[in-house]
Simulated scan of single mutants.
Amino acid sequence: MDTITFWGLAALAVAALLVGFSKTAVSGANTVSLAIFAAVLPARESTGVLLPLLIVGDVLAVFTYRRHAHWVTLWRLFPAVAVGVVAGSVFMLWADDAAVRRSIGGILLFMAAVTLWRRRVGTDAAPATGPTDGGGSGRGLAKAGSYGVLGGFTTMVANAGGPVMSLYLLSTGFRKLGFLGTSAWFFLIVNVSKVPFSVGLGLIDGHSLLLDAALALLVVPGAFIGKACVDRIDQRLFERLVIAATVVGGLQLLLR
């Protein structure tokens, strides 16, 4: 981290702003942040640097949307997510920087494909404020389990659980505020639970926290910008830009 160039620091600063913005406005922007972090820093260590910044953003998002969470959905997801986080931790035990870099790149491209598929089949239009997939039915629990395991694994390996959870929440029928409130609480709880794993894996240490202390100052204005813009954003255009940047970032990590 002592070798980060001026332009590298500038890129990390932009990524920190996007972390805050993604937590209060458009969650897809976070995929751009993790691509920037993995490009500027060693891919494996980048996940540990990014995690505390995500938690700062989660706290701000919970403060903003705390009253709109759907806790039945959250409790249905948590057991499967825990399985995914443990699986991701096991993977990180043996994965070197190249393996993590390729994994992050592959996950980014997969998330971009999932987002494009979601838009193609028209799941962006959410008709209800809560889940409409059968609640505690076998189909609903199986769906929560599959999304939860994938979300837990991707968030542990690459801090990239956002697109998976976005797809799940949208497919179960959440409007904007319910979506933002439920995802805010979800990621605050999950990201805090990942801290002991990241410390144990050596991904979070004193040096990474010093860098976080500087970058965290930019997460806060990013969150306020997101809150101010959430009702004014041309969602379609912004999603296209996020998808394009995600694909470029994913390819860059795979071909690096």
Rank of each mutant, 00 (worst) to 15 (best):
M165E: 04
T154K: 13
F110A: 12
G162F: 07
G151R: 09
T132A: 14
R119V: 00
S166H: 01
P163A: 03
V72Q: 11
A160C: 07
A87N: 03
A82E: 09
R101S: 10
V100H: 06
L141F: 03
S103A: 15
A160H: 09
G152P: 10
A112M: 09
N159C: 08
G105V: 03
R101E: 08
V121P: 05
V149P: 06
D97H: 10
I104C: 03
I104W: 06
R76Q: 13
T123D: 14
R118H: 05
F78A: 03
I107E: 08
S89K: 11
G130V: 05
W117K: 01
A142D: 11
S89I: 01
G138V: 12
A160K: 09
W75H: 00
G136H: 14
A80K: 10
V114H: 00
M111E: 10
G88F: 08
T129N: 12
G151K: 11
G136I: 11
A112L: 07
W117R: 07
A158Q: 12
A144T: 04
L93H: 09
S166A: 15
T129C: 04
T132F: 07
V83F: 09
S146K: 07
R120S: 07
F153Y: 13
N159Y: 08
L77V: 01
R139Q: 12
V85I: 15
R67S: 02
R120A: 14
R119P: 02
T155H: 08
V86L: 15
S89F: 13
T129E: 15
R102Y: 11
G145N: 11
A125S: 11
G161Y: 10
G148P: 07
L150T: 06
F78E: 04
K143P: 00
V72P: 02
V149A: 08
G105E: 07
M111F: 03
